[in-house]
Design a protein around this nucleic acid. Structure first.
Length: 472
DNA sequence: ATACAGCCCTGAATGC
DNA sequence: TGCATTCAGGGCTGTA
């Protein structure tokens, strides 16, 4: 998707190739592309006009002619091509200009999202009064854009920083890719609320924007050679991206796998370790089955800490018309329901224990829902320590939600006895349940803290308090 | 006023 | 294999 650097590269390339050329013919194949005029007006206005100047503001290209101007926004997939006159018209070429040096200048847009508008002025100030341009904020790489100005705009809103940086009225020229890069460079979690952004953050956002845009423009500017390839949008900058589209790849700073999520409907990539929420620390609690996670979480709740529990979320979202309920019905129709139209846990358990394949199917439905709910609750939580209890922390990759992880362990004997008593299982059944998951040793090895819950309660509590002291 | 869902579009990827 | 569904997303419009 063309953002400021790509559009600037297109501008520079076009400047070299079509400046001072005169339009001898215009063909419009998709009229909805034209924002403020008919096909006939568009053609008759532009025929015979010479391209005097090519400007840009943010992601908008501005073609200046003798007595009128053309504003073009490429949106997602708009591209300009320069071709020979006899090149066959391609499916997605919607506007074709013939220039007086006998070349064909074509607008190509697979998804037809791009727009053009015609203005009967060539005065820059007048052009900038066009509604779409008038409301744009300062460009992200504008040297006169001060951190205080940006902060003032941000603090008027209460939205996620990612959403704010995509808002062209706040800061202009950044798109989905560069916003992810800017957030990463500024060490900002994309879910950070604009009201929590500090003056330092604002300074960092502007500095990162300038760096990332300058680098991208430089990279894009070196790639244009061919007359037949698209102009400018095939830049090489994607090779230098730090986080965007790098899901599961190691963070270039700390090697933690990059996480993909959604913010305001936009695919968003960030490093969970480098980009934490301000004033919040998320501490995960995990451990094998029947090791005593509940002992720990109950104590934490008594002390007044917020404890989010994956199992409780599953229970809640299984209720009629909640997320897991709907997703399961969508997959299995109504055969997993009991006579009260509730999810029948026995039927579900039976299905899960039938085969590994079935277990995976269920997990693939449930885990992402729980992950999203947890993410949402963490974002909404007040400042301070937040504990998140997830039995399958590592197996289901919930560790990316946490900054530190506690593993609760106990001795094998205690674990087996507790499981047999609690779930009314035989020794063999209990062993099978335990063996189905990652071993205690492996979980402990992946964790930052280990709580030994094999002795008296006071010993366990002492260990919890020690961790709180360190993390508060 | 502010926030947000839905819309415009097509092709690639995924699901069954 | 082939058909159907889902996803990608910038900016505009309408609604609560």
């Amino acid at each position: 998707m063309p953002e400021l650097p790509e559009v600037e590269t297109v501008r520079r390339t076009l400047e070299r190739q079509i400046l001072n050329k005169t339009i001898t013919d215009v063909k419009v194949y998709y009229e909805r592309m034209l924002e403020n005029c008919t096909k006939e007006d568009f053609i008759s206005t532009l025929k015979g006009k010479t391209i005097k100047k090519i400007d840009r503001y943010g992601k908008y290209l501005i073609f200046i002619f003798d007595d009128c101007s053309l504003i073009s926004h490429l949106r997602m997939e708009g591209k300009f091509f320069i071709k020979n006159l006899d090149a066959p018209k391609e499916k997605h070429e919607h506007i074709v200009f013939t220039l007086d040096n006998n070349i064909s200048f074509r607008y190509h847009d697979t998804r037809k999202f791009g727009r053009m508008a015609l203005l009967n002025t060539i005065d820059k100030a007048q052009i900038m009064k066009y509604p779409a341009l008038a409301k744009l904020g300062k460009e992200a790489n504008d040297e006169t854009f001060t951190e205080q100005e940006l902060l003032n705009k941000l603090s008027k809103k209460n939205i996620f920083i990612k959403t704010a940086l995509l808002d062209q009225e706040i800061i202009c020229g950044l798109g989905n890719i560069y916003v992810d890069e800017v957030c990463f460079m500024s060490k900002l979690n994309p879910f950070t609320l604009t009201k929590e952004i500090t003056i330092k953050d604002a300074e960092s956002i502007l500095e990162s924007s300038r760096i990332v845009l300058a680098k991208a423009i430089q990279a894009g500017g070196t790639t244009i050679r061919s007359y037949t390839s698209s102009l400018g949008v095939t830049g090489l900058f994607q090779l230098e991206l730090l986080v965007h589209s790098k899901e599961n790849e190691p963070c270039p700073v700390c090697k933690t796998p990059i996480v993909k999520t959604k913010v305001g409907g936009r695919g968003t990539y960030y490093c969970p370790r480098c980009q934490t929420l301000p004033n919040k620390k998320v501490i995960g609690i995990t451990g094998s089955i029947a090791t005593g996670k509940t002992t720990v979480t109950t104590y934490l709740k008594e002390k007044g800490y917020l404890v989010l529990d994956a199992d409780e979320i599953v229970k809640e979202e299984k209720k009629p018309n909640k997320l897991i309920y709907k997703a399961l019905i969508n997959k299995f129709d109504r055969k997993i329901l009991n006579s009260n139209n509730e999810i029948d846990d026995k039927k579900l358990a039976q299905f899960i224990y039938e085969s590994e394949h079935n277990r995976q199917i269920i997990n693939k439905i449930i885990h992402p829902i729980v992950y999203d709910v947890l993410e949402d609750e963490i974002v909404k939580a007040p400042h301070g320590l937040i504990f998140v209890s997830v039995p399958l922390m590592f197996e289901a990759h919930f560790d990316s939600l946490c900054q530190k992880i506690i593993c609760v362990k106990t001795s094998d004997d205690v674990q087996i006895n507790r499981l047999m008593n609690r779930n009314n299982l035989t020794l063999e059944e209990a062993k099978k349940r335990i063996d189905a998951h990652m071993t205690q040793e492996e979980k402990c090895q992946k964790s930052d803290y280990i709580i030994d819950n094999s002795k008296e309660l006071c010993y366990t509590i002492e260990q919890v308090n020690e961790i709180i002291r360190k993390e508060e």
